[in-house]
Write a protein that binds this DNA or RNA. Structure first.
Lengths: 125, 125
DNA sequence: TTTTTTAATGCAATAGGGTTGCAGTTGCAA
DNA sequence: TTGCAACTGCAACCCTATTGCATTAAAAAA
């Protein structure tokens, strides 16, 4: 995995933003022309492979990425994500890990728990 | 809400299929040329409004629809959905309602719990 | 330092899900 | 039977995301 300008800049953005970001969110935060839009998609996917970010599929189908807190060898993200309908942000609610128990013989590989509604900030306004 | 040929046919499909279906899944099951692809999108949305179907956003961002079991006045679908990576189906696991508790001031309007992995059928083969 | 290797990037084209505007059709109530 | 509004078809469009291929540039090797 090489250290490139695009990778550094995108990782920095992911790590300093406390909401999950889509490719276009990242693009909006990058200096104009720093890299191609396709590169953003590819870097984000690479960050997931490196366990530096995790993927969340939002209610509207758009894929968002957020930084990993403690994923050294394996991703573990069964915490909840909240999508605010008003400000349209997706945030990790790390504190909340829903508990559930599947019937026998289901092999779980990935969890995407998404709750949408109104976040405290928007509710206050 | 009017009773149309398209609505009847699509509702019948949704009600007799025990996996969640996307617009293109429904189209594949409809007699060729019964209606336009746009109509399928619109009918599915209408069925959701009528509380006859509910929406699930799959991991890959595709929206699927499944019939409602007991939604007379209000949708309530905090049951789990399972997406099999192998046969790429999404099924309602009605029996499993994950429990979770959000911090104060979050107003929940919608729940989309999706777990992906391998389903029992595919695991057996 | 220079060379070499190959991962990473840019670009243009493409795919696929979903939506919109509008004219025409049809269910259904009056 | 008539009239209205809900529904549909069609074409165009938007958006997210992916792919193939030529080029560039990290970083290891010489």
């Amino acid at each position: 995995m090489r250290n490139t300008v695009a990778r550094d800049a995108i990782l920095e953005i992911i790590n300093t933003t406390d909401e999950a970001l889509s490719q276009s969110d990242v693009q909006a935060k990058l200096p104009e022309g720093l890299c191609n839009r396709v590169t953003i998609y590819r870097v984000l996917d690479r960050l997931v492979d490196e366990h530096l970010a995790h993927k969340i599929t939002n209610i509207d189908g758009v894929i968002k990425y957020a930084n990993c807190q403690s994923c050294t060898t394996k991703h573990k993200h069964n915490h909840l994500h909240f999508n605010c309908e008003r400000c349209n942000t997706v945030t990790c609610i790390e504190a909340v890990e829903p508990s559930f128990k599947l019937p026998a013989n289901y092999e779980v590989k990935n969890v995407n728990f998404l709750v949408s509604g109104i976040c405290p900030e928007c509710k206050g306004n």
